[in-house]
Design a protein around this nucleic acid. Sequence first.
DNA 1: ATTATCCTGTTGTCGGACAACGTAATAGAG
DNA 2: CTCTATTACGTTGTCCGACAACAGGATAAT
Lengths: 243, 243
Amino acid sequence: MKATPHSFAPLKRSPAYQKVYDAVESDILSGRLAQDSLLPTEGELAEQFNVHRSTVREGLRLLEQAGLIRRGPAKRMIVVRPESEETATRAGRSLALHGVTFHEVWEAIAIFQPAAARHAAKHLDADQLDALDEIVADARRARTGEEIVASASAFLQQVAAAGGNRVVLVTLQSLNQLIASSLEQVVDELPRAGRRIADAQSSMIGAFRAGDEVAAAAWMQKHIDDLKRGYEVAGAPMDSQVL
Amino acid sequence: MKATPHSFAPLKRSPAYQKVYDAVESDILSGRLAQDSLLPTEGELAEQFNVHRSTVREGLRLLEQAGLIRRGPAKRMIVVRPESEETATRAGRSLALHGVTFHEVWEAIAIFQPAAARHAAKHLDADQLDALDEIVADARRARTGEEIVASASAFLQQVAAAGGNRVVLVTLQSLNQLIASSLEQVVDELPRAGRRIADAQSSMIGAFRAGDEVAAAAWMQKHIDDLKRGYEVAGAPMDSQVL
DNA sequence: ATTATCCTGTTGTCGGACAACGTAATAGAG
DNA sequence: CTCTATTACGTTGTCCGACAACAGGATAAT
């Protein structure tokens, strides 16, 4: 046996379009390319990098999917920051691909969202409380399952947004997105649970107004249990995969 | 005023490369394209979709960046599932780009991780407890900041993994990744806090063994406070951006 | 049997071309 | 002179065709 004395890294020669991506990404991350600024035209980039326009375009597609650039005015590409919603979508899809079940998603929400509610109780301001009232009003008006899902999702979202912590918001956003997509599959059976959901939301708002963290968390727990109940009543199996 | 009677959706005609992406993505998500299976060659795809190979390639770049395909043997593309660490990294970078602060990340963890600890107290089995003991032992042995960060991160990870809920795991993974990268910036000052951290971990394990949810959550809270303390002692500003 | 060599299929890159589309500039109507 | 219609132009989206670089398998030579 020769016994490899030292194994060097595979020494990957990345293709040119990757180099294009790296170069532009670097300039975006470092701030040399400001947000909302227009990217040079494909032709200019091709000239600057000294590669063919097709190659530039492949790099642009990478940047596009990475969420770092977007079509701006006149079809030109502009630099943007990845929207949290997109990131949430991507994260959710990744989980879905791994075959996570409704139960896992629901459980994760049951764990995290009450904690977020407790935090929200300390930070919600008058405007945000009004927004919550609005959402509950919508919920009570809701007749179809779609509307109920939408309002429940909006409610959770609003609570997550309280406190102005973007990390908390994005984290819960992806979870809410997943649970919503699951609930939408069984919307027809949800109107039954609509009342219970709205009641829990109302009680929670009461706790928020009183600044009662413990009660807020408890009501959130109940609210989330109601979501599961709706899912179960619809006869959907808890271990079915989300998507 | 003409008064628009009804505004139709912008009716976006997506470019062909986007259609290619959508078509392939759909087949991957639905499972029609199995994991690890080879994608048809660019030429074949071009023929099937009836577009030019350049167009196909742009679509492939989108799929590549989306993490749905990867270069396989003989340079051919193969179908893969996005790895959760990758997703976590991506989510983290997105947040970093939005300029989230250390405080936001820390706060998010302070909100979520104790809740996860409470959940873990109900699900940790003997093996997992042993693994935690191992981690604490490492923590006590740790001299450098790097080692402390690594063990703290491993500890949080292990707690997140308890209960076998992948959604919980992935969610906390990205947060832990972010906080770890911040702490690594100030590792030199961390050894001071090493002892406190290890003590909190030990106490938490005790609570886990006793199945005491409340105590577990409380100790986790303390543990996370210690992480912040370490950061503060290092003189790093809480509102500094993570990266 | 093992190694060196050629062959073939695919990707990476290039050059060029043209239609579709938006924007900005220009001419025309009031 | 303002406002609308039209034209001209710049840029993207897509196509065509071509070729070198490479990896893997088949083949020939040792």
